[in-house]
Write a protein that binds this DNA or RNA. Structure first.
Lengths: 146, 146
DNA sequence: TTCTTATTGATACCAGGTATCAATAAGGCT
DNA sequence: AGCCTTATTGATACCTGGTATCAATAAGAA
């Protein structure tokens, strides 16, 4: 499954440019989210963070997640594990696929979604400003190994 | 916005056929969910239920929602109001649209979604067994009145 | 280096949701 | 119809993911 290609530096820059102070917890948490190929919950991220930074506070993790989500750097996965997990947002419009066997996230080309939205706008008469699509199933790897 | 055309009788039948006892709370809650054109949370449904059936318990509402969801009669809306609201499931595959202004749900033909899934399966190599799509924006009514 | 103030971590708190359990009532059986 | 079994209910206590508070810390401008 192709990994994502996120650059944590860009996230720090984004925070900096939005007027936030750059701190060590931020760097820790950004690294964690940017490099995980699995959706992470706040509690999971907290656990990982404390391995390298034991005094990390719980509330801080929630605050960072809120910040990262509001800046569009991570996005919430509305899935089987609930709606409390997050994955990095890729720059282009991508469709999110989650493998129900290995749990990994994969990103698919978003063009079909664009087409769908345009088509649906025309037939329904609604003005669609936001979409949320998630696909679930067996990834190519897990099919092979089954 | 076209209303949904759910028949509460069918839901009772479905519960009955699944081996559940038919009770008065069930009828009350089914009526509430089947007729609402807005996504409802458990607390909201509880509030409405107590208007006609004051002794209705909170846990009972949560239990019924679980039951109805597991039977596929209602589905969770993964949306801006959180992921705790439910709408009736229509028999055919439909795409869910939620108006960000009036809050109402509308159901769009699901064929484009089918096409998208088929297309994405071929290009990605993943086997897609489940999809979750939600569209948000301004419904045709709300655009008119803006 | 100093000073201001955003950020942090610890704690208490809140709310949505679940487990427990005695009381109730569906509905099969006679 | 009445009885009996047991699923369902309602009240309560509880749990857990997430938030508000606030003193202590540390960015980063001067």
């Amino acid at each position: 499954m192709p990994g994502n290609t996120i650059n944590p530096e860009d996230w720090l820059t984004a925070l900096d440019e939005s007027g936030f102070r750059v701190t060590s917890v931020q760097e820790t948490l950004i690294d964690i989210f940017a490099h995980s190929e699995y959706p992470l919950s706040a509690e999971q991220a907290w656990e990982v963070a404390r391995q390298s930074r034991p005094k990390t506070g719980r509330a801080t993790v929630y605050r960072m997640i809120e910040k990262l989500e509001s800046l569009g750097l991570i996005r919430r996965v509305h899935g089987y594990q609930g709606c409390t997990h997050f994955v990095p947002t890729l720059p282009e419009l991508m469709m999110l696929f989650i493998c129900l066997y290995c749990g990994r996230a994969d990103y698919l080309d978003g063009q079909p979604l664009n087409d769908l939205i345009q088509q649906s706008e025309q037939t329904s008469g609604h003005h669609i400003t936001e979409s949320r699509l998630q696909l679930f199933g067996a990834c190519s790897d897990c099919q092979q190994n089954a």
